[in-house]
Amino acid sequence: MSDLLQVRDLHVKFVTPDRTVNAVNGVSFDVKRGETLGILGESGSGKSVTLRSILRLHPEHRTRWGGSIKLEGDEILTMGRSALSDLRGQRVAMIFQEPATAFDPVFTIGHQIAETVRRHTGKGEADSWKRARELLEMVRIPSPAQRLKAYPHEMSGGMRQRAMIALALSCNPALLLADEPTTALDATVQIQVLLLIRELQREFNVGVIFVTHDIGVAVEVSDRIGVMYAGKIVELAPVEQMVDAPRHPYSRGLLASTVHDGMRGQRLEAIPGAPPDLAEVPTGCSFAPRCKFVQPSCVARPPDLRDVGGSHLVRCVLADALEASVAA
């Protein structure tokens, strides 16, 4: 598997007259074809900003960029207009929490998918509709021939989400960006959509970046998981490693404070405090104010993301010392 996407030291800052938000503060990762990278983090940690950066979807005039994002070797941050529209229309597709934003309410689902297929492949009218139907079948929409004629509002939440996945795959992208696509769905529907994404990912051999705040969801879909905190990846590891032996105090805290089977009657190990304000550029470890292991070296300068072996990266001065202690 070769690297499909390379993100290096990405910085994204939003500047408006009244405030500055340092949303992403040095994020680096790779995604290979056929692999799913899960990005896990709490609200405001910079997951969506990171993801949207890959399509350069931020308001041009008030976004300050740093670093590099390369798709199959092409630099996205300096890409010209036509290459960018190529990127957005064909090479990278995105699905979100709210499928309503992906569809135009005045056209049928079939029309919108067929139109995308036609634009992308140059197929004729009939062939495009045939392909649209196949795509609806592929995402397990029952009676796809009828559903082609449905308007977005005539479908249930789960169906619309499937239709959005069909639309995303209609241009045969190399990379699929998923921003909490199952968060608004009911439990029994969410699991169906997660399994579908997993299966289609294999079938189409796309790279997937799956953003979520739900550890269980990340574990279901990811090959590797990156944990984000205050605009940085603080830990990145294969999913088994992340669940069995998280090293960063924040990842450990997150796992320990997530309620699951068998915790009844126990006191939860909550992380005290709240995430930092993103107005300032961090001068040390952003987690320091909440960390029970904090020491002077943590606040002297921001810790680096270090490889502790087995493709396991940790951004903490105690990365090695914390190895021996029992996992959270």
Partner: peptide, 9 residues
């Protein structure tokens, strides 16, 4: 968020 949810629980 989960870390805050645990505090409130």
């Amino acid at each position: 968020d989960k870390s805050v949810e645990a505090q409130v629980l």
